[in-house]
Structures are given as structure tokens and as C-alpha cells.
Amino acid sequence: MASKLEVQISVDVLEPQELTPQEQQAMQLAQEAANDAYAPYSNFLVGAALLLEDGSFFKGSNQENAAYPSGLCAERTALFALSAHYPQSKIKLLAVTARRRQEKHFLPAMPCGACRQVMAEYEFRQREPIPVLLQGPDGRFYRFQAVADLLPFQFTPDNL
């Protein structure tokens, strides 16, 4: 007999004034990173900012390439660069936002599947949740308590 497994995910939907000062700073840095994105083909600018355990921040932006599959999303750019330069750093928050080049306002930004899997690897690696703050609709924000909330059935080293 088949059984059913239910997965519940909780996400906080926040007004800008409900963000903590560190979340506000992380989102501001993600917006700055988006403005620096190299996206001449899609004109879709994405920025990510990581808040580290020591209170410092690390940014990444999407990087496109004329050979389309050779580009990289903002989330992975930030995570890979952080790991290459500061491999022992613990991540306390990941913030992501996006905008179209010809527009000033920022859009809801949802990490792609590949980014979610990479984010899950870093969460597994540091053995503690990484909260994720995403630009939501109408100027609001989505706060997930962990990457696992974005990717509940993840592939981890335990699956190997």
C-alpha cells in the first residue's frame, strides 16, 4: 500500500522595515552586486550577498558568456569565490535580488535548481542552516530559515 509523505515549508513574508539591520545591509549589497553583473545577453542582472560569521559580507553577480552554458549565476559566483578565498568562513545569511537592465526597481529573485543544489552543499558542509533572504513581490522579502526549505529533497554526500 502506498503511503504519503507531506513536506511543509515555512517562509516569512516581510515588509522592508521588518528586516534586521544585517538583512537590510545584505540586500543592499546584493542590489549593488546586481548593478555590477555582466549580463550583456539576457540583460537580467542578479546579485547575491553573503553575511559571514565574523560580520563581514561577500558579494557575487551573474556572469554571462557568449557560449551560454559557460556563464554562472550570482549565487554560485559568490559561494565559489568565498570558498576559494576564505574556505573556513561560515555563512550566516545569503541574500539575492535581480532587476532588468532597463528598469530601476528590483524583482522577485528565485535561485535556479543548480544554485539551490550548490547552496545545499554549503549548508551541508558547514553543518548548520543558512537562512536565505530573497527579493519578493511588491517590495516585500521572503526569508527562508534554511536552504533546505528551498530544496527539501536534496542530493548530499550521504547519497553517494
Score class of each variant (00 low, 15 high):
Q17T: 15
P21W: 05
A37K: 00
Q145N: 13
G55L: 00
A81K: 06
A109S: 10
R127E: 12
V13S: 13
G113D: 11
K92D: 08
A67M: 07
G71A: 10
P69M: 08
G139S: 11
Q88N: 07
F141L: 06
Q117D: 15
E64W: 04
L51I: 02
F144L: 14
N35E: 14
I91Y: 01
L79P: 01
A74S: 07
P137K: 10
Y38S: 12
L134C: 05
H105F: 13
M110A: 14
L79E: 04
E64R: 04
M27E: 08
K59S: 09
L150Q: 03
C73L: 11
L160A: 11
S89K: 03
K59D: 07
K59V: 06
F155E: 10
A33V: 09
Y68F: 08
F124Y: 14
A109T: 06
L160S: 06
Y38M: 08
R100P: 00
E128Y: 11
Y68S: 12
A146P: 08
K104Y: 04
A48P: 00
F80Y: 12
I91Q: 00
Q22H: 09
V46L: 04
E23I: 10
A74T: 03
T20D: 11
F141I: 11
G136V: 09
Q102T: 15
E75W: 00
A120Q: 09
L79H: 03
R101P: 02
G71Y: 02
A2Y: 14
L94A: 07
A78P: 02
L50P: 01
C112E: 10
F57W: 01
F106Y: 07
C73S: 10
D12E: 15
A66K: 03
R127F: 07
R99M: 05
E23M: 14
H85D: 11
M1V: 15
N62E: 02
A66D: 07
A98D: 02
L19C: 05
K4L: 15
H105Q: 12
L19A: 08
F144K: 07
E15Q: 14
Q145M: 09
L51A: 01
L151I: 13
K4I: 15
S56L: 03
E53W: 00
F44W: 04
G47C: 05
V132P: 02
A2E: 13
R76H: 09
R101E: 14
P131L: 04
F80N: 06
L107D: 05
D158Q: 13
L50H: 01
D36P: 03
A81Y: 01
M110V: 13
V46C: 06
V13M: 11
A146Y: 08
T77K: 03
D12P: 05
P129G: 09
A39V: 04
F58P: 00
M110F: 14
D36W: 04
N35P: 06
Q31Y: 02
T20R: 06
